[in-house]
Nucleic acid binder design. Sequence first.
DNA 1: CATTTGATGTTCT
DNA 2: GAACATCAAATGC
Length: 201
Amino acid sequence: MMGKVPLSFYHNPDTLGLAERLLGKLLFTKTDNNQICAGIISETEAYLGAGDKASHAWNNRKTTRTQTMFLQGGVAYVYLCYGIHHLFNIVTHKDGIPHAILIRGVIPAIGKDIMQQRNGKTLPFHLNGPGKLTKALGIHTRHDRTALDGDTIWLEDRNINIPRENIIVGPRIGVDYAGVDAALPYRFRISDPLSFKNKLL
DNA sequence: CATTTGATGTTCT
DNA sequence: GAACATCAAATGC
């Protein structure tokens, strides 16, 4: 299963399973300057829509912003957080079910010089933080609703397999407002990204 | 070290 | 006008 991830992958109703399987896949962008960058996904969070208080689409709340999440899986949901950070999510599930997966971390892999320019100074080995990777990859709120089978933002599977014992599952970050749902184990991350440094690419 | 704060803009009440 | 799926720099021990 090499190559570009097909739209059908994102139509899967098992959003939690998808969030885990995204680890190790490559996130590609070809945005502002038409140059290709990619990073290995190292951290994700699942947001399960209507029944999930931490989700923007909790209780099927439909607004201009959240409409994107109600689309069929396989499009980008990009929104602005705290006035500064553009956060990138992947919409999953079928049309009308507002599930999404937030990408919280990547390991820069391709086009690192471009990513470093965007980042300002140096480019760390591990870009941990949802606002940081979008900056380095050139993802902007203008990419909201971008289909992930095009040539602007897409994922590729390069057979990087993350063993189960190297995946840490835990509660999501920054969602304390969500009451009991804040404690749900919907966050997935590679336990020690540094240990993969030599195996990758 | 840990903790607080300032930046900044869109959305929702 | 408050809140917000954040981050880096400044401040306080």
